[in-house]
């Protein structure tokens, strides 16, 4: 008997009943064949149990989807997703927001603007810029949020923002180590907000969400202590889920940056732009 047949037998690739019976019979009488059978089935088992499957990293999925997305594709699915993420009924949170603002106003007089504010991420609301930044980043990494506009040119991205309803001046710096990937415009309380994404040489993803400071706590929320801290010329950073979350005031905009690149490099880039 051809020894390869024992491999096909182990893999359930033989359907001919008479051949199957012949193999079974021979397995009972032939120790050498039995050994081959054991080796073949053992190897099959050990590979399936001990060798791990490695799934494609999320950044790769996201990068590939971005590369193939036609420019300015406006698929319904993406719009719905953005609406899901960015649009929330105001009234359901109104009371909570009033309470938060009241507490912030009470404590603000005692607050030293240069001490690093404590942000309790677990209690952030969906209308909060911090909350949206970390959620959007997670969606980008999972490949669920892809750029609406693909470009590696900062001017084109700024033009895209201004010609599509973003009514404040945007800053899209270019960096040596990162390439611009594209942009997204979200809508919150009827106002368009600007987001853009970079990709690093090793596929690091750097996401920037920028809002004019006058919009804060009108169209989108952000901890007042944090805003004051940024107003004093500080840069705020926190590690969350292994990524760096950074807030910085660049010209008149409050920028939230979330990145999985070298933390110091990200800080150097975004904390020294003014």
């Amino acid at each position: 008997m051809n020894n390869d047949l024992i491999t096909a037998y182990v893999d359930n690739e033989i359907s001919d009943e008479s051949l199957l019976n012949r193999i079974r019979e021979q397995l009972n009488n032939d120790n050498s064949l039995k050994f081959d059978y054991n080796v073949q089935s053992f190897c099959k088992r050990i590979v399936s149990k001990k060798v791990k499957k490695i799934p494609a990293p999320e950044y790769l999925k996201s990068k590939i989807l971005s590369e193939i997305t036609p420019k300015e594709i406006s698929s319904k699915k993406k719009n719905n997703f953005l609406l899901d993420i960015f649009y929330h009924p105001t009234f359901s949170f109104a009371t909570a927001i009033v309470i938060v603002i009241a507490i912030v106003l009470i404590t603000i007089n005692r607050y030293n603007f240069n001490s690093v504010p404590e942000i309790d991420i677990t209690n952030l609301k969906p209308d909060n810029m911090f909350f949206q930044a970390i959620n959007n980043y997670s969606a980008i990494i999972k490949g669920q949020l892809t750029p609406q506009f693909i470009s590696d040119n900062s001017k084109e991205i700024c033009n895209y923002f201004s010609s599509n309803g973003v009514n404040y001046s945007t800053i899209v710096p270019e960096f040596k180590e990162w390439k611009l990937l594209g942009a997204v415009i979200s809508e919150d309380k009827g106002t368009k907000l600007a987001h853009h994404v970079y990709v690093g040489n090793n596929n690091q993803i750097i996401y920037v969400f920028q809002v004019n400071e006058s919009y804060i706590n009108h169209f989108i929320d952000l901890d007042t202590e944090l805003v004051n801290y940024l107003d004093s010329g500080n840069c705020y950073s926190k590690i969350y889920n292994g990524n760096l979350v950074l807030f910085s005031k660049i010209e008149q905009n409050i920028c939230a940056v979330v990145a999985n690149d070298d933390f110091n490099y990200v800080k150097n880039n975004f904390c020294n732009l003014n």
Partner: peptide, 17 residues
């Protein structure tokens, strides 16, 4: 793009592995 996303993208994990 939509056809490709539906047909090809789901196989990315197997291809990557």
């Amino acid at each position: 793009y939509e056809d490709f996303e539906r047909e090809a993208i789901p196989h990315m994990d197997a291809l990557y592995n």
